[in-house]
């Protein structure tokens, strides 16, 4: 961590590309690809939470795995604390891994049923090199305490815990190396709503006490609004809109963002807005086409959208959107009179 200064963002992702090769349909057929990430760029400042939202299959989890250097990236750059991680071998990455850890979606699948809490939580310490057993035990005790687990839980096995407690174990595992960045891939979507709030509050508290930076992936807008300082909306492997949470939620500039926001069921008196409804189906990601990624489902689609790809440009300060007609979208955001 030589050239890392406080001003530099914890995570800088530039033009990240990931294409999955599909199995050949026949022996002589060409390989086809799933274009999971098509040039994603963003950065996260220290101590902030960055939300990534989008439908299933839009590339959110692929993005998480690539940022975590768990897959071979097909292009672009991921810099964590100033250090480029794309292109490093698994062995070269090992000493860096203590700085970025991950919390997974499914607390039932992300904990090995054959290991006890002590061994699960201590697992990432492997990246730290040799620790004495006293140091190790102290770390485990300290981190379990900070996520609200009892010291008596240390020798228990995952099946003895509820979903919320399991996710606390998973968070403890991510925290044990004192990472700068935690990538959380839908960490509460598998939990009951009542438990979701506890876990979200825990994440928030931990951020305040440890200054940890989050990259938070979710399909739940309410969760992102609660936790995140900045949000990026993804569609078919691209960021279509990005900005400060309050700006983006109050005044979306991309029709897709608007549709997502409108789709959230609002209890009580719903705000009177012109709702944009979603048209068409999800298009496949097995080809790259000219024009806007959202063209098939966009209710506002014009000819230009089918031929020219809209660039991600600023619509206001620190708020970018990739739509030819973002001004029109924003014009409609103003509550209708009456």
């Amino acid at each position: 961590m030589t050239d890392y200064s406080v001003e530099e963002p914890v995570l800088i992702v530039e033009d990240l590309v990931r294409h999955y090769r599909l199995p050949k349909e026949s022996l002589f057929a060409e390989h086809r690809y799933v274009y999971a990430l098509n040039g994603v760029s963003f950065e996260i400042k220290k101590g902030k939470s960055f939300g990534v939202v989008g439908e299933s299959g839009c590339g959110k989890s692929t993005l998480a795995r690539n940022v975590m250097a768990l897959e071979d990236t097909d292009g672009g750059s991921v810099r964590i604390l100033g250090e480029e991680v794309v292109g490093l071998s698994f062995e070269q990455l090992r000493p860096l891994r203590q700085h970025f850890q991950m919390v997974f979606q499914d607390p039932y699948g992300s904990l090995d049923p054959h290991l006890n809490v002590d061994r699960i939580v201590a697992e990432p310490l492997a990246a730290l090199g040799p620790l004495t057993s006293a140091e190790r035990d102290e770390r485990v005790r300290e981190v379990l305490e900070s996520v609200g687990l009892k010291s008596g839980d240390i020798s228990k096995y995952p099946h003895e815990f509820s979903g919320g407690q399991r996710q606390r174990i998973a968070i403890a595992r991510a925290l044990i190396t004192h990472p700068e960045l935690i990538v959380a891939d839908e960490p509460v979507s598998a939990l009951d709503v009542s438990v979701q709030a506890q876990v979200l509050n825990l994440l928030k508290d931990l951020q305040e006490s440890f200054g940890v930076t989050y990259m938070f992936i979710s399909h739940d807008l309410a969760v992102v609004e609660y936790l995140c300082d900045e949000v990026a909306v993804m569609y078919l492997g691209e960021i279509v809109e990005k900005g400060r949470t309050e700006d983006l939620f109050a005044n979306p500039a991309h029709p897709y963002t608007r549709i997502l926001l409108d789709a959230v069921p609002q209890p009580g008196a719903a705000k009177k807005r012109d709702r944009i409804k979603l048209a068409g189906n999800v298009t496949g990601q097995t080809e790259i086409r000219a024009g806007c990624a959202f063209q098939d489902r966009c209710p506002m689609v014009k000819n230009v959208c089918r031929s020219e790809k809209p660039p991600l440009v600023a619509v206001e300060e620190e708020h970018l959107a990739a739509c030819h007609f973002s001004a029109d979208v924003r014009a409609k955001n103003k509550p209708a009179a009456g």
């Binding site: 975590m68 768990l70 990455l93 203590q98 499914d106 992300s110 697992e123």
Partner: peptide
Amino acid sequence: REFVLAARAAGKGKFR
């Protein structure tokens, strides 16, 4: 399974 991915993220090699 996800716990294997978690072990990868912890820096553990395939052998371990």
